[in-house]
Design a protein around this nucleic acid. Structure first.
Length: 518
RNA sequence: GCCGCGUUGGUCAAGGGGUUAAGACGCCUCCCUUUCACGGAGGAAUCACGGGUUCGAUUCCCGUACGUGGUACCA
């Protein structure tokens, strides 16, 4: 049915930060486009001037850039179908709405907001809590279907504020094929006469998507499931505008749901449950409300993308970790789930953990170094890379780096002496004071193996179990009972620093032991 | 209320008329490591419910329940 060039679009309205569901829609569009060697376009749907938020468009651009899902055509990049901002295309839409009026598929409506409100309260009942402007109600409203032609012309001539509404057929069955859901059908009588062109001359989403998808030669239209109920309106528009043969194939993507309760995931849930919902930090310029993002928390974009793609799609095998190239090669719409997926932050972190664990130390260091600088810790890239190599297997998000590695950059401020002091004795103290000078004989940056050999040799000589000594040594170096293998830490710290920490440690243990015994 | 869409373990999910119903996350136990982590080995689900169809249904059909989306001159 469709062998034309694949062209897909992501069409957000610039009203705030991009949340998980939005990014996933981008991702599916992008993967589909690349898989079919087609084009991915970004179109900004800023037809509602009241909801426009400054900076939101830049945020979207930056977000796509960070994720590595950049469009082939966009407002900032341009392209053969520019402009890509609907506000800049305003003049285009009216003619199509008028065309529909002329062909009898739409009509002028002069009802004021007050009159509409009045209709809704008047018709509201328990059975019908939300009355629609539909094929029955329109008979009693002020529009070009009920008014005399002369009246309509007069109203129009006086520039009376009006909208253009679609005239939904009373009782038709409209069926279309959704790439994910198969055949879906609606009775047209159940859907209301949606506004197509607003009183301010801007199109509503319904008109704008259809016109722009047509004009931009979109071949496949993917969007969230929340759009499924208005699909009949759009399909009718394609038909009545005479473009049916060029209508894109549709796919309505499953929603991403709250982890706990009910409903689709919102940024509120993130605040409530303690995880980000937006891709990147976002501050609303009007309210100054701040919403945290995955990027700043320390997610790697490749992990973020991988985690998102698994929410609603899989390739049918056990594989869960995919590079973007693999995803492009393997992605297909017919393996997308129908049902919504509850978001699981633990699993999301696991993906990130996998990616951090397997990322090379140098790349990690490049990401980590600026985070250290924010703490006023300045360390060379090479050293940060070395430390990263030692601790990366225990990081779930990059922002946890410091708590796992601070002792490489500064001396511990506190010591978990409780774990060693009760068993601390003169023999152990003797061991460390004896070992101290021996370290001078080692190279300044000894390997972990050398250190370990020297340590064990002396322990054997003094007939103390190595295991008894390791924990005290670790706490001298790190302050606590955690971290990479002790000798790796000592090796990274170097002889001089290790000696200093041993000296401080012995002192600390002795004092602690004294006060305990006293 | 009405309309649409959906329903396999706590979560993501594979599978699809006949199976011991994969795997992952999380949880628990054990091994490795006298730290933590990594890495191993195990443990926990009869597929929402009720009717059909069938020799046989978790898989097909119909209902019900539940969930979810829509019901704006918002997208």
């Amino acid at each position: 049915m469709n062998n034309r060039k694949v062209r897909v679009r992501f069409a957000p309205s610039p009203t705030g930060g991009l949340h998980l569901g939005g990014v996933r829609t981008v991702l599916f569009n992008y993967l589909f486009a690349k898989h079919h060697k087609g084009e991915f376009v970004l179109r900004i749907e800023d037809t509602d001037q009241t909801r426009y938020v400054a900076g939101a468009e830049e945020y979207i651009n930056e977000c796509l850039r960070w994720c590595g899902l950049e469009p082939d055509e966009s407002p900032s990049k341009g392209g053969p179908y520019a402009p890509y901002r609907q506000s800049e295309r305003k003049a285009l839409y009216r003619q199509y709405a008028e065309q529909l009026v002329a062909s009898g598929h739409a009509y002028y409506a002069f009802d004021t907001p007050e009159e509409l409100e009045d209709m809704r309260v008047r018709l509201k009942t328990t059975e019908n809590p939300a009355p629609q402007y539909n094929h029955i109600v329109r008979e009693q409203m002020k529009n070009s279907l009920t008014l005399q032609d002369s009246e309509v012309q007069a109203l129009l001539a006086k520039n009376t504020p009006h909208v253009i509404r679609i005239k939904m057929p009373e009782n038709d069955t409209l069926t279309f094929t959704d790439m994910i859901r198969g055949e879906v059908s609606f009775n047209t009588g159940m859907v209301d006469d949606k506004v197509l062109l607003k009183a301010d001359g801007m199109p509503t989403y319904h008109l704008a998507v259809v016109v722009d998808d047509y004009l931009m030669k979109i071949s496949h239209a993917f969007r969230g499931e929340e759009w499924l109920p208005s699909a009949p309106v759009h399909i009718l528009l394609w038909k009545h505008l005479g473009w049916e043969s060029e209508m894109p194939e549709w796919a309505h993507l499953p929603l991403i749901l709250k982890p706990d309760g009910n409903g689709k995931l919102s940024k509120r849930d993130g605040d409530r449950l303690g995880f980000p919902v937006y891709a990147m930090n976002w501050t609303d310029p009007r309210s100054n409300e701040f919403t945290k993002g995955f990027r700043e928390l320390g997610f790697l974009p490749e992990a973020f993308v991988n985690m998102l793609v698994m929410l609603g799609w899989n390739d049918g095998t056990e594989q869960e970790i995919f590079s973007i190239e693999e995803l492009i090669a393997k992605f297909s719409m017919d393996r997308v789930h129908k049902a919504g997926a509850k978001f699981d932050f633990e699993k999301a972190k696991w993906f990130n953990h996998q990616y951090i664990h397997h990322k090379d130390n140098e790349s990690l260091a490049a990401l980590l170094q600026p985070m250290l600088a924010e703490k006023d810790v300045h360390a060379g890239l090479e050293f940060v890379a070395q430390v990263a190599g030692l601790v990366k297997e225990r990081l779930y998000v990059l922002s946890e780096f410091w708590e796992h590695s601070f002792f490489f950059f500064e001396r511990p401020k506190t010591y978990d002496t409780g774990a060693v002091v009760p068993k601390w004795n003169e023999a152990k103290e003797k061991f460390f004071t004896t070992w101290l000078p021996k370290l001078d004989k080692l190279p300044k940056q000894p390997g972990a193996a050398e250190l370990e050999a020297s340590f064990k040799e002396l322990a054997a000589e003094m007939q103390i179990k190595v295991g008894e000594l390791q924990l005290p040594f670790r706490i001298m170096l790190t302050g606590g009972k955690f971290g990479p293998p002790v000798f790796d830490i000592a090796s990274t710290l170097g002889v001089t620093e290790t000696q200093k920490r041993i000296a401080i440690g012995v002192d600390t243990y002795r004092k602690a032991a004294d006060t305990t015994n006293a």
